[in-house]
Design a protein around this nucleic acid. Structure first.
Lengths: 161, 161
DNA sequence: CCCTAGCTTCAGTGAGTACTGAAGCCACGA
DNA sequence: TCGTGGCTTCAGTACTCACTGAAGCTAGGG
């Protein structure tokens, strides 16, 4: 199949590995989940069955099952079932990507709940709270900024269509 | 010492554990690194030796050594050496926090390098590149937004002093 | 009501890693 | 040059977790 052949001077299989490695480092995703995601981003046709994924990525059925569920849970791929005993097919939800990643970014700012809690814990302790107040101010600001991001993305992407 | 006693109706030791758990989940930091960070945020006095950290957090000297190096490498704490055979002391760099976290956020947008590479790989393949193009547009936009964040934080924080 | 394709579950395996504690390594002071 | 305090290194241990492959489950077709 053309998915693993050379295209445009670069091996898709290498690209898939890089993509998987990045998502392992950044999101703590298992390598196979990243491979599935990468493969579904560039494969033709768009939809693939679990068996096809396993064959293309040399992974066991159990692994595919587990990692496909992980990606479904995160909302990055969709599952389409078909009548009869035909296999279900999976594909990336490129439209949902922004949502998922923005939500992930926003979770970073949840540290502000901890810092504000710590600030309250040290209330009345004078300048012992100085350090944590400084950090808290950053996270509070970040929290606001990141929630604005979502609105700005919607404005930006709607302007494009 | 007052660091582990009740303050303001909440146990600092519980707060430290929550903080460490959060940083383990979010940044993939070892628990002990998170504990050191949390402890250094609220302890009095501000500076602590490796031995004091070990005693306060019930961790071995080796663990403290390793994790203190990790935090130093990330730029979240500083090490102050003293003349003679006195022990070095560590403290949080609350001023560097914003920088470190902003850099971390910016790294998320580095996925755009992968998506742009994938786009190039599929050039001339018609609408097979549609999915990855969509994702690439998001990351490219995000990349720009996140690099603006740094400037906005500097403006915000300088306005405050 | 069985057969069978596809999917999920799960025990077992291997790889990776956080942590300990002791031994080794500095570097200063005498 | 030796003694000593502090720090780092490292072998060993315990634990976590991704992954496999086989067994079990489910649901449509004959």
């Amino acid at each position: 199949m053309s998915d693993t052949s050379r295209v445009g001077g670069r091996q898709p299989s290498d690209w898939i590995e890089s993509f998987a490695a990045r998502f392992e480092a950044q999101e703590g995703m298992p390598l196979i989940a990243g491979r599935i995601l990468a493969f579904l981003l560039i494969c033709d046709p768009v939809e693939r069955t679990a068996a096809e994924l396993g064959a293309a990525l040399s992974a066991s059925s159990g692994s595919i099952s587990t990692n496909v569920r992980l990606l479904l849970a995160r909302g990055l791929i969709s599952k389409t079932t078909r009548r009869g005993r035909e296999a279900a097919v999976y594909q990336v939800r490129e439209d949902a990507w922004a949502n998922v990643m923005l939500r992930r970014l926003e979770s970073v700012a949840e540290v502000s709940e901890l810092t504000t809690g710590g600030l309250r814990m040290l209330s009345g302790q004078g300048d012992r709270a100085d350090r944590i107040r400084e950090v808290d101010q950053f996270y509070s600001w970040l929290s606001g900024e990141l929630s604005q991001l979502r609105g700005r993305w919607e404005a930006h992407s709607s302007r494009r269509r």
